[in-house]
């Protein structure tokens, strides 16, 4: 007689499943606990580290950037919130907000001189001059971090790379590829002429003149008719005018 599936078999199967589940849950719990414990240790270690080196982080730019790098690797952003324990611990959030405000200040003050495009290096120099009293040195890395925080304001602060240099843009001007190429070219001697642009970039007259005129109207370029060869030079304060000595 063939045995038909009975209620007993089903019950055994269910009991087995339950057993497996229980064991599985146990293992998972142990693992999570372990993980939590590790995280807590890590966090306290990081806090300890930050507390111990608080002054170094605040005063020493190299150390600061290494600290940021380390935080980034483990997925912690000390700037994410001003209310977090990092801010309480280091005041590091404030540091970058303060820097941000000063950067906006400098960009506005120099806008009429450079058309709202400033060399990162020069911005950094001006920043250091401005902060002389604070005596905490500031690197380009810090500037970049502070500027990235300014983005949430939607004010169009942006860092653009032109050739080897980094420029900080504080006006909503859209620079296209042609403009970038001209700026790149101007980095050598600080100015370009229409002929040079045509020759070096193999552009037509129209294209060269058009791009230069736009840059002029945006206040990013200045003309110079004073050279003895009589050729008009277009100077770019953002790559060549130094207000700091």
């Amino acid at each position: 007689m063939r045995r038909r599936p009975g209620i007993g078999g089903l019950q055994t199967a269910a009991a087995t499943r339950d057993q497996y589940r229980l064991v599985g849950e146990n293992v998972a719990r142990i693992k999570t606990d372990l993980m939590k414990e590790q995280l807590a240790t890590f966090r306290s270690q990081l806090e300890d580290f930050a507390r111990k080196h608080k002054n170094d982080i605040r005063k020493n730019p190299t150390f600061r950037s290494q600290f940021h790098e380390m935080c980034a690797k483990v997925g912690v952003d000390p700037l994410a919130s001003n209310k977090g324990f990092w801010a309480e611990l280091l005041g590091i959030g404030d540091f970058y907000y303060e820097l941000g405000v000063q950067i906006v200040d400098i960009c506005l003050a120099t806008r009429s001189l450079n058309g709202g495009l400033i060399n990162l290096q020069e911005l950094c120099n001006l920043l250091c001059q401005k902060r002389k009293a604070a005596r905490e040195s500031v690197t380009e890395d810090d500037c970049l971090r502070a500027i990235s925080k300014l983005k949430v304001l939607g004010s169009g602060f942006e860092v653009i790379s032109v050739g080897k240099k980094k420029l900080v843009r504080s006006v909503p001007t859209e620079l296209n590829k042609d403009h970038n190429e001209i700026l790149d070219m101007a980095q050598g001697q600080g100015y370009v002429t229409v002929e040079e642009v045509k020759r070096r970039l193999s552009w037509s007259s129209g294209r060269a003149i058009d791009a230069l005129e736009t840059l002029l109207e945006e206040g990013l370029a200045m003309i110079d008719d004073g050279h003895k060869d009589g050729k008009r030079r277009y100077w770019f304060p953002c790559v060549s005018f130094v207000t700091t000595s």
């Binding site: 009429s112 206040g219 100077w235």
Partner: peptide, 13 residues
């Protein structure tokens, strides 16, 4: 800075 010796055509500048 040489361009400051040439009158600039753009108003703001």
């Amino acid at each position: 800075y040489p361009p400051y010796f040439t009158l600039q055509p753009v108003k703001d500048t």
